[in-house]
Amino acid sequence: MLAGIALTLVSIWYGQNHGLLPVQASDDATVIDGLFNTMLTVGTGIFLLVEGAIVIGAIRFRRRKGDNTDGPPIAGNIPLEIVWTAIPVFIVLFLSVYSFDVYRNMGGFDPDAIEGTPEVQVAMADTDLATPIVDGQSSPKTHSMHHHLALGVGADPSTQGKEPDLSVDVMGLQYAWIFTYPESGITSGELHVPVNSDVKLTIKAQDVLHAFWLPEFRLKQDAIPGQPAELRFQTKREGEYPIVCAELCGPYHGAMGAKLYVESQEVYDQWIQSQVVAQKGGDQTVATLVERTDSERTDADRLAPVAAELGITAETLKSLQSVQPAA
């Protein structure tokens, strides 16, 4: 009894004080961490129970020297077995419902997630992906037919149906992320977003699979060639956060990364201005790629010719604007 109370207290304490997760850069991260803390509390309890039973059993029921007799012939206990089947059933049902709720709140069921991803149909119909044909035929009917195929995490219930404050196209390629701001036409190797805004990323890949991971936002989505996906989140904490590629994409997979800058509106506006000026001035290279390892730097140099082929063509821009009229 006393052991049970101690076990519960230790589990609850450790579930809250584990220090295993990075800072929470969004409200979604807080909610997901709450889910993890709950699972860790339950998990710690089960861990202590099982390991305790093994260690105590090994000491208390060890065979004494010279004792060659058998233990009691207990071959089972139906009520006990029902109990230890029912408790896990209850735990996993509870965790399923809890996870479902968290997933809904972070925007996992956003029916608009397909918006801005008409290439899904194109990929089926047309085999030439080098020139994505986007004819802007995004009729509501097509949407309702396909919205179950939406990939990624969309708007949470509070922002559902609203346009995001900022949309950015993300393209993964060996070994860099390229961010295109459709509204201002900027292309960059850094992702800058204003704080307290609702950001929507459309994630695509050019060559192989990549995965766009924001550890501080607890968000991840694979970038799949030919199948655009979405990540939508709200920023609430200024700072500089790593962007990690989390799907094996080649030998330099470990060096593929970028930075997310969550800034005040003024700083963000300044950055946009400086980029617009720099890129209008005929400098089409992505000069501001993050300071990283040497292998990265050569990638940055490689970006210039590639940027033209990214599929960020005039048509794509036009289609994006037709999908999101006047944000």
């Binding site: 997901i32 889910l35 399923s96 809890y98 996870s99 972070m106 607890r218 968000l219």
Partner: peptide
């Protein structure tokens, strides 16, 4: 197994 945590 929990989707929100697995996404992380």
């Amino acid at each position: 197994a929990s989707v929100p945590f697995d996404i992380h």
